[in-house]
Design a binder for these strands. Structure first.
Lengths: 254, 254
DNA sequence: TCGTGTATGTCCGATAGCGCACATAGCAGA
DNA sequence: TCTGCTATGTGCGCTATCGGACATACACGA
């Protein structure tokens, strides 16, 4: 388990107004989040908000009979726990770690204070929230109209953008939970992508071989979300590769 | 075409801090919105925000090949045009009138000013936004896991809560567009509900005969959204019938 | 009162995804 | 190196929904 990246890897922390950052930095605490860890349960009142650096956190909705669906993913471009500043305190979603790594956490109260105190900070958080909303809405349409294969492409691309390298650590079983489909469905779709040499799937490890082709096979949902995120979140757009800034490009396998 | 209800029919206008309300009331303009009217197109920069009184506005996402899905509905409990205060200016959704009636519109700039000026007003808007987020997310899960019949029940209930009386003016064709399914699918589901004497469908007019049963046939998605809205939006929870306050209960047919 | 257009109901085959069962393959630990 | 667990691939019948074609029924206006 490597060291925690610096807080600046998180784009919101980097883009935060200087004085807010100064107040907040000493209070940030690096925490390692492991795969599958539940950060918030549905209805929980968060004590901390999390700024991911090299991890990915999924927001899931779970139905009464156990079916689930991922409604958005958050990586180093964002923060988990928006209900804290949106004023609702809690939300009916579950937040789980989709890719292990480090995040910086801050007491919920502290973010709330900064949000209410500093207009620029507020704008930053709200614009991120709007990007999140776009992601959710697009996911809803995607769930309705696009094939599992297309959705898998979207899912891989969204994840890839939030993680260094071109590899994801994730079983088909878990992806199936995220997409709200059967594992077999994912297996089938992944098989097709492998036949096309677009990805390589090996025991819980996806390696993307041909990102361009992957984007072609994907529905437009990925592009819509990406474009809107780039527009709304500072920095995010300055980095055309989509990979987190402090890492080398996809050339090297981690 | 009857007169416009007072602005107080809109719960956000009613719940707004007194001083904000005083500043804003004289600048509100009643507008009649007719069925199917497009309030915003995807990507538009709104010049006005709309506070519905007795109309319903749907937020839709449309895919490249014309498929659509409703991601949320807004009635007298809310406001349309959140991108204005969220800081993104525009959003990729289309807003269309799902049920004709009146709304009060306010220049976008004015809402933005009040939002930035008054912390209570801000909280009000943000809590409403969080309720909207819940609705979108629940829609995404519902799209994935529930049958057309269940979704139709959810849709009818959500609409009914936002309109006086127990009747909806809406063709199956339009409902199909909202749910992102075929008209035939809606026809089939509506037929089953009619056989059960839960609703009565007659040429673009749905009459709800047995609301209790309708709620039973519905997936939990309606209840989740309703509960969260009641929690987050003031007043909304004070009115257990769920119908807009200034109207008589469902007893009378309009 | 009658016609016309819109709204609804229904039938067909096609297909994507489900649920289940089971075979295989890679990985980790003894 | 062997063993066992976890992850993946695959086959089969089932069902909901799709896509298109068509028949009916209601509502409104001449």
């Amino acid at each position: 388990m490597s060291e925690a990246p610096t807080p600046q890897v998180n784009q919101l922390l980097t883009a935060a107004p200087a004085e807010v950052r100064e107040r907040v930095l000493p209070q940030l605490e690096a925490v390692h989040l492991s795969l599958g860890q539940v950060v918030y349960e549905s209805g929980d009142i968060p004590r901390y908000v999390y700024f991911p650096t090299d991890c990915i956190i999924s927001l899931l909705y779970v139905t009464e009979d156990g079916d689930s669906a991922e409604i958005s993913v958050v990586g180093n471009e964002g923060v988990v726990g928006i209900a804290v500043f949106m004023g609702g305190e809690s939300s009916p979603s579950r937040a789980i770690v989709q890719s292990a790594g480090y995040a910086y956490r801050l007491p919920a109260e502290r973010l709330k204070e900064e949000f209410n105190r500093d207009a620029d900070m507020r704008l930053l958080m709200l614009r991120f929230t709007q990007a999140l909303i776009t992601q959710m809405a697009q996911t809803a349409v995607c769930n309705r109209h696009h094939s599992i294969e297309q959705q898998l492409c979207r899912w891989i691309l969204l994840s890839l953008d939030r993680v260094p390298g071109s590899e994801l650590s994730m079983t088909q079983e878990l992806i199936a939970n995220m997409l709200g489909v059967r594992r077999e469905g994912v297996s089938h779709a992944a098989g097709k992508l492998q036949d096309e040499k677009v990805i390589n799937y090996k025991h819980g490890r996806i390696r993307v071989l041909d990102r361009t082709r992957l984007e072609e096979l994907c529905c437009e949902c990925y592009a819509v979300v990406k474009k809107e995120s780039d527009r709304l979140i500072p920095l995010s757009g300055n980095n055309p590769s989509g990979y987190p800034l402090p890492y080398p490009d996809s050339s090297g396998v981690t």
